[in-house]
Design a protein around this nucleic acid. Structure first.
Length: 856
DNA sequence: GTAGGGTTAG
């Protein structure tokens, strides 16, 4: 973890601050007598053209000192150059010099000024100049102003001034049309866009002007989401150029048709148009989207040949493509592409930072790069940068670092930007800091659907379904609207606490809202039903789906694996391969855990070997842990140790914890002790290791050692996650802790429990006091056993539900061995089916048998 | 003097 000393953005080099050109020293050197007005004027222009702002201004001042007063043309040319080179700071200086010069500004200069302020985002200033013009404004002034509004997101203003102009008696030209249509290229104003489209068709501009065609393409894509119509416009455009081709390619990629985008690119090349930096950039994004690194490589070679790889825009796409690729080592290729770029802007920095964050577990490197970016001080971060950084802090479970970074966002004035605030909320929810998340939510400048969804997801993730639903009701009653994300979050919330009733309610509501064919939602439904214990319903959703992706398959395979139907899980895995769906890392975790739950050692090895050989998926720590589990559960503890020592990386706590659990099942204190020591070496405060080790000693009767560990835990003030079980009755979740008497029906519950104890003892049940983890007398031990939370939940289930409904119990930790035995007897004694979901898997207990075959 | 194409939080 990084102990952060973030460079302070305030102490960064002055280039981050707006520099004040009026402070620049005026050269005290007098110009030689013989230098002419023309040569100085040309020098100003030359400096401006190559972006030497300070020199241009110095020369301008030199002219004044030599009594060669610059004329309006000098200013005008300089201004245009500033706009062309996007040197807005210099443009502002030129404007102030113009004002000081008391020259009378003509329409051309004023139009340039409107354009200058439009482009640097100062639309108020542009508006001011436009208003001051009155009779002198011409068609260019109007179109500059329309486009200024459109460019700055003031769509309504753009539309209004367009019609105002028409009313004023001006006939719009192609510039006005394309700007006005651009202002309508969104869901809100799309219909007005159609009106303008109708007007446009009375002119000849659609046929003659490429820009107008491009604006129309975007009207249909962004305004109506209709790629087909956009393509029709494109096809009917009599004049095309590289920009219009590139626009179409880009929109296809963005609208989720990267394959068509690549096809269009080939058409473009065949038609003889020359691709430029934007074209390559877009095609590289399409490859990234498709996961087609082979074409990406070819494009990479091409841009290297043309020299375009040095361009920031192309470089960004290369960085992004390699970062998003799942091919081994491609993140390093991404970094190489970044390092090779000749200069960087916010986008390239953000692309590489985002790459490290999204490409699994390199969040620290993302933070380090940000530090470098800030200390170099040439480029200012933007809201995208902060969104990525806050996500990194969330992944690192380091909200304190996130707060420091958020402090930077505040200093850069980016804290009111929606996605920065939303990222902050998300970061807090990942570290279970729901109160801080709520505060950040309330503090938001503007709450949008993402803000709500993030918080809903946070509550759901933290098993607070009441808050999640409360918020959901708020969303439903507002005009924010719900989307697939909202439903998916709620479903995963219901899944995590096993609230199938709530899950069914959401299912009904999403059907009503028309989300039933959304693939992500269906995947969430599969996962909700299977995690809530209803594997049949999950399988039904899976079977009824139209298009299934790798997540759908993985969800159902995981479902069957967790329910102990290993054969079915593996059968589905084979079906998945047959339907040419490529498995991913998660799929293999499901497959290997299926083998583990069913004790299929050979099959496990076979899949473990084939994941890299056949699918180029390098086993992660989790996969090694699955193999350790397979070996350990089957009692091959020495083989498991050997396997751990042969791993290509140092085993982490997860692997050792897996081995430790196996040692507990097979009562092997020697290896267990070693495993626990290895865990504590890496994480001395790991409460789970302490507990497991103490349990191990307790279960083999080494009470002294067990007590020592407990004492050590107390001294370190480690808190073990309290064991608890819950059950959903009539859409309400009832939660029980050990010996819990807080429930309003506690009396009835304990009476039922006593009766059940008697019944099953008569049937031959013998309490297994090895599972009592305190050193007390035998008789007390039995009492303790009957206060376990899962037994209390079972008793409550028995008195509040009737046959033939199965009783579904959920437990946050693994189910206790004695409870497991007791439940098998209870299933016979009561004739009820009992389903228990523990932290690891499902147990379907029926007629005295459990689906786990007592192997878990 | 006015117009078009690339990163996006859950």
């Amino acid at each position: 973890m990084i102990s952060l000393s973030l460079p302070s953005p305030a102490s960064s080099p002055s280039s981050l601050k707006p520099s004040n050109h009026s402070r620049h020293k005026i050269s005290s050197v007098r110009p030689p007598e013989n230098i002419s007005f023309e040569s100085l004027k040309n020098r100003v222009i030359r400096h401006a053209d190559v972006g030497h702002a300070e020199e241009a201004i110095s020369t301008l001042d030199l002219m004044s000192r030599a009594n060669l007063t610059p004329d309006l043309t000098t200013y005008s040319v300089l201004l245009k150059s500033c706009i062309r080179t996007r040197n807005f700071e210099l443009g502002r200086v030129v404007h102030s010099r113009l004002t000081e010069s008391r020259l009378e500004l003509d329409t051309v200069v004023l139009n340039s000024l409107i354009s200058l302020y439009s482009k640097c985002g100062d639309w108020g200033k542009a508006e001011e100049i436009f208003s001051s013009m009155d009779e002198t404004r011409d068609l260019v002034s109007w179109s500059a102003m329309i486009s200024c509004y459109a460019h700055n997101g003031l769509n309504l203003e753009a539309v209004l001034i367009f019609f105002e102009m028409v009313e004023f008696g001006e006939w719009p030209n192609e510039f006005c049309f394309s700007a006005a249509i651009r202002a309508c290229s969104n869901r809100e104003y799309a219909r007005i866009g159609l009106v303008i489209f109708g007007f446009l068709m009375k002119t000849g501009y659609f046929e003659s002007d490429v820009c107008v065609g491009c604006a129309l393409i975007d009207l249909f894509v962004k305004g109506f989401g209709d790629l087909e119509l956009a393509l029709k416009v494109f096809d009917e455009m009599p004049v095309k150029n590289s920009v219009s081709w590139t626009l179409m390619i880009t929109r296809f990629t963005q609208m989720g048709s990267p394959r068509d985008a690549i096809g269009l690119f080939l058409d473009m090349i065949i038609a003889g148009y020359v691709p430029d930096r934007f074209t390559f950039s877009s095609c590289l994004s399409a490859c990234s989207e498709l996961g087609l690194l082979s074409i990406g490589h070819q494009l990479h070679t091409w841009v290297v040949k043309t020299g375009l790889c040095l361009d920031v825009c192309v470089g960004c796409s290369l960085v992004d493509m390699y970062a998003k690729s799942t091919v081994d080592g491609s993140m390093d290729d991404s970094r190489k592409a970044f390092d090779r770029m000749s200069n960087h802007n916010v986008m390239s920095w953000t692309a590489i930072i985002t790459g490290y964050v999204q490409n699994g577990g390199r969040d620290n490197e993302a933070i380090e790069l940000y530090c470098r970016m800030i200390s170099e001080g040439r480029v200012k971060p933007n809201h995208f940068t902060f969104a990525a950084l806050l996500k990194a802090c969330g992944n690192l479970f380091n909200p304190r670092l996130g707060e420091q970074i958020y402090g930077h966002a505040v200093k850069f004035g980016l804290s009111p930007v929606n996605c920065v605030g939303n990222s902050l909320i998300s970061m807090y929810t990942k570290s279970d800091r729901m109160e801080d998340a709520r505060k950040a939510f309330e503090f938001l400048f503007e709450k949008n659907l993402v803000s709500y969804n993030t918080l809903v997801d946070g509550y759901a993730r933290n098993s607070d379904s009441d808050e999640a639903f409360e918020l959901f009701n708020q969303i439903e009653n507002s005009n924010i609207g719900v989307d697939a994300f909202t439903f998916a979050s709620l479903l995963s919330g219901a899944a995590s606490i096993g609230a199938v009733g709530k899950g069914e309610q959401i299912h009904a509501r999403l059907l009503k809202a028309g989300f039933e064919s959304n693939i992500s939602i269906c995947n969430a439904l599969i996962s909700m039903y299977t995690r809530c214990g209803n594997i049949e319903a999950g399988f039904q959703v899976f079977n009824e789906m139209e298009g299934r992706n790798v997540i759908s398959w993985t969800s159902i395979i995981t479902g069957f694996a967790k329910h102990g139907f290993a054969e079915k899980a593996l059968e589905l895995f084979n079906q998945m391969l047959d339907s040419s769906i490529k498995p991913n890392e998660v799929t293999y975790i499901a497959v290997l855990s299926a083998c583990s739950h069913a004790g299929l050692i050979d099959e496990g090895w076979r899949h473990f070997d084939s994941m890299f050989k056949e699918h180029r998926i390098r086993p992660r720590m989790e996969h090694y842990a699955c193999m350790v589990d397979i070996l350990g559960r089957s009692g091959f503890l020495n083989k498991a140790i050997k396997f751990i020592n042969s791993m290509p990386y140092t085993a982490d706590a997860l692997v050792w914890r897996t081995l430790l659990s196996a040692c507990r099942i097979h009562n092997n204190t020697e290896i267990g002790k070693h495993a626990a020591e290895m865990i504590l070496k890496q994480d001395p405060n790991d409460p789970a290791a302490h507990v497991l080790l103490s349990n191990l000693y307790a279960s083999t009767g080494q009470w002294e050692n067990a007590a020592k560990i407990r004492k050590d835990m107390k001294e370190r003030s480690l808190v073990k996650e309290a064991g608890c079980s819950w059950i959903e009755i009539a859409n309400k979740v009832h939660k029980f802790y050990v010996g819990d008497t807080k429930h309003p029906e506690a009396k009835e519950i304990y009476e039922e429990l006593d009766e059940l104890a008697m019944k099953i003892k008569e049937m031959g049940y013998v309490p297994d006091t090895n599972f009592v983890l305190h050193e007390v007398e035998e008789e007390r031990k039995e009492q303790y056993l009957f206060q376990h939370s899962e037994k209390i939940a079972l008793a409550y289930g028995l008195i509040s539900t009737a046959k033939p409904k199965p009783i579904r119990i959920f437990k946050n930790l693994r189910v206790c061995g004695d409870c497991h035995t007791a439940m098998k007897y209870a299933s016979v004694a009561t004739g009820r089916e009992i389903v228990v979901r523990d932290s690891n898997r499902f147990h379907h207990i029926k007629e005295g048998m459990c689906s786990c075959k007592d192997y878990w």
